[in-house]
Amino acid sequence: MSAWAQIGAIVRRSVTRTARQPASIIPPLVFPVALLAVNAGGLRASTELPGFPTTSFLAFALAVPFIQGALFSTMNAGTDLARDIQTGFLNRLSLTSLRDWPLLLGQLGGVVVLGTVQAVFYLTVGLVVGVRFESGVPGILVLLLFGVIIALAFGAVGAWLAFRTGSGEAIQAFFPVFFVFLFISSMNAPRNLIGVDWFRIAATLNPVSYMIEAVRSLIITGWDWQALGLGFGFVTAIGVAAFALAARAMRTRLTRT
């Protein structure tokens, strides 16, 4: 069996499993949109601040669900994989002729599919409520690509945690940490309009700010190559690092088990 066929088989199983768990599909779709609705209504007044980059807070905030959804991907990928470890299913897979990296890549198949569905959903919600994309249709395609890459990168983080801890509960315990990364960022205000110094510095050091800003630029600015470069750069770096760590952790665990 070729590596691609192996990946295909694992992806199929991963997608089926994800599709059969409404509990892992619905929250990543509903919660970010609910938060978007609340913030867009509650913070509309902040668009009146001098220097705010747009007159529509909805357009400004639409970037957030893409990142929030990706954080859910981390949890889902991690929890699913941890369950495979706990139930011994991973052992079953490792007893086949499957090689290491197709196993890892395949496991993330479900996350990528869900990530794509999420991105399309948020995009549709944005378009339905009247958000205009300054970068046009090509920008929308780039946004979808970004959604897939970010789901893959964060999914790899989840996989790394799963291989390291082997416990679904341990993965869930990381959730608040991701939440902190999301909220201490430029999620609700442009960085130059964050008044509290330490918060602005933390948001500037936080890679999540740049991911949000990359998506945001496609919506409210047009083609801001610097924002896109930083966003894609950070996602790619995190993804590569997470894959490397996950692959190493997987080899350790498979040797151990």
Binding site: L43, A45, S46, E48, L49, P176, F179, V180, F183, I184, M187, N188, A189, L193, I194, G195, V196, W198, F199, A203
Partner: peptide
């Protein structure tokens, strides 16, 4: 955490006219 995120991240909102 909510207190930090809201009070810290959104402090400029108090400068909105009418606040």
């Amino acid at each position: 955490f909510f207190f930090t995120a809201f009070a810290g991240g959104l402090s400029q909102v108090s400068k909105v006219p009418g606040f």
